[in-house]
Design a protein around this nucleic acid. Structure first.
Lengths: 335, 335
DNA sequence: GATGGTCGGGAAAGCCCTTGCCTGATCGGC
DNA sequence: GCCGATCAGGCAAGGGCTTTCCCGACCATC
């Protein structure tokens, strides 16, 4: 690997001059020297060692993102928003997948700290595990204390600015709509119960339905289509009288639709289905899926903006609105 | 930010000893010193500066991935495979999105070189632009010359081991099946024509159909659902007699289905639709989508394996098989 | 022609860490 | 009780780069 010294030698100048040319330093350099340096750079295909640069000039320009799982469409969309803003501001983004493992999340936070990133964005629901939260808090606090910035997407129990989707309100809208349409026995396909997203949505749903949700009518799955399908099958067997299934994300709602289709249950005539998140697929399944739209890319964009804004105070909480998208999978309860 | 010197001072030892404790060096350290160092580390929340470490001990452990767009389900899946293997081998992955911009791809390659990554994986179709290819080649060659490793997914026109999906063969299968079912006027919704993926698939399709594809029956879109829908609408207007539409990915195929539904054209009775990639959505639309399954996660996993294998020679080309998945959207041509 | 001011370029320190080498101490053996 | 071996720990170099400080050359000025 060519070094700055190599370039300088080849150009017949000192490393200092070479550095100044390469970094377009404000200090003037004679044209012929500049040209010789640039030629040497090209010939040697020299790329400055970023680590040495960061050591010498501790200028943090990379942003770290720890996300539950980028290949999940929900986070893909959030990530898109994050990246857009980061790119606009000339920042490189390091993406790390925690796969919803709190331990791994902790590891990645340390790893990003070690990389001296300018900011850390934690995207994805928080956990109910207080032990993990305490550890995470400690790490993030230490990071912030050294000038790092933290932004959170979809969680807020730590230091750092937080941007939240209106999970509870969105679910409340769903509950109210179901109630209006006469549904009295509603089953729920929930996400993992240690996630705050799950509990927030369940709470909102109960509020909208204006009644507590009996445990019997809730099944916990892991947000994937197939787990949603299995949970739906169980639920249908356990509570045959239900008239509606609410899945706490669209992937699981799609799984629910497929089980209902397989069993010959008509949607929405016999059973209604409601999803959550308004993923692209929601408009393309049959029947099209009634769901709650969350401004996911916007969520990411906003979080990155806060993370990169030196004036942000670090304990702001913003909530972005949810919206009920009425499509064909939801109808009045059968009489 | 606490430094190693701070830790050493607090523990009352030399930086050398502190370093050895922290890195679990083979050199023995007395238990009481070790404990004092570890206590100081905990109290100061010390995390070693990764840049300084990499300077001092040039041990490359990070892998860079440049991908067209992680939020595209195709690449989400490839990335999942890449990450799985990287994680298994204890490597951190830096993901960069080129958004199919060759310039940005070049920039990211330099950026990753500067980060001294152990390997660079380029995921996504190559370009037909020879100027860009030459520049990229030059960069990659320089990188390889300094001990870097390169792996390519879905492209092969550069140095480095390549893992390819059987694009041409998959498309040939589609063409042959259409021919067998009596389709004679087939429209194609293609991807961007500067991508090799697009041209490979077009070539395979023509081979399978056993006839050249008239330009008139090809529309180029950008692999997104909505562009696919628009292209399909145009195609239907321009070639009303067509009996089948082949979209070169599933997103566009879904767009095609939606346009056909809107126009009241029955699928597959009046027009058949075939997709490509077998994304999860393919099994959930109505009618379910006949498509070509590509082992995407496997593709990523294999590429990462090669990238991290010190014995790989750097010019291997592996092709992973494609498989036709028959579902409901393809039927015999109407008579 | 001497003085002061500018300007371009280089020497070298320092960023934080690792590690080869050396030293001082401890221990066992005779 | 002394010598050599062994061991733990510290010193200092060095990795690639930036940047401060300094120096020499040159110009303009009186």
């Amino acid at each position: 690997m060519a070094t700055l010294a190599d370039v300088a030698r080849r150009a017949g100048v000192s490393p200092a001059t070479a550095s100044r040319v390469i970094n377009r330093s404000s200090k003037p350099v004679a044209d012929d020297l500049r040209e010789r340096v640039l030629r040497a750079v090209a010939e040697l295909r020299y790329v400055p060692n970023a680590h040495a640069q960061l050591l010498a000039r501790p200028q943090r320009s990379v942003v770290g993102v720890v996300v539950h799982d980028v290949s999940d469409p929900y986070f893909a969309e959030v990530t898109r928003g994050l990246q857009r803003v980061a790119t606009e501001q000339g920042r490189l983004v390091i993406i790390c997948n925690s796969y919803r493992d709190p331990e791994r999340e902790l590891e990645y936070v340390d790893l990003l700290r070690a990389q001296q990133v300018a900011a850390i964005v934690l995207a994805g629901s928080g956990y109910h595990d207080e032990g993990v939260n305490a550890l995470l808090d400690e790490r993030l606090t230490a990071y912030v204390a050294t000038g790092g910035r933290v932004a959170l997407v979809g969680r807020h129990r730590h230091r750092g600015d937080a941007v939240l989707p209106a999970n509870e309100e969105g679910a409340r809208l769903v509950g109210a709509e179901l109630r209006r349409l006469g549904h009295r026995v509603v089953g729920v396909i929930a996400g993992p119960d240690q996630l705050t997203t799950t509990t927030d949505r369940l709470a909102g749903l109960a509020a909208g339905l204006d009644e507590a949700l009996p445990t019997k009518r809730i099944r916990y799955a892991d947000f994937t289509r197939d787990a949603g399908a299995r949970a739906t099958a169980e639920l249908l067997d356990a509570v045959p009288e239900l008239t509606a299934v609410v899945a706490l994300n669209d992937s699981m709602a799609v799984g629910a639709l497929s089980v209902l289709r397989d069993r010959g249950v008509r949607v929405p005539d016999e059973v209604s289905v409601v999803g959550f998140d308004d993923m692209p697929i929601a408009a393309d399944v049959t029947p099209t899926l009634t769901t709650v739209r969350l401004p996911l890319a916007e969520l990411g964009a906003r979080a990155m903006t806060l993370a990169l804004d030196p004036d942000a105070d670090g304990d702001r909480i913003e909530t972005l609105p949810a919206e009920l998208v009425r499509r064909d999978s939801l109808g009045p309860a059968p009489t």
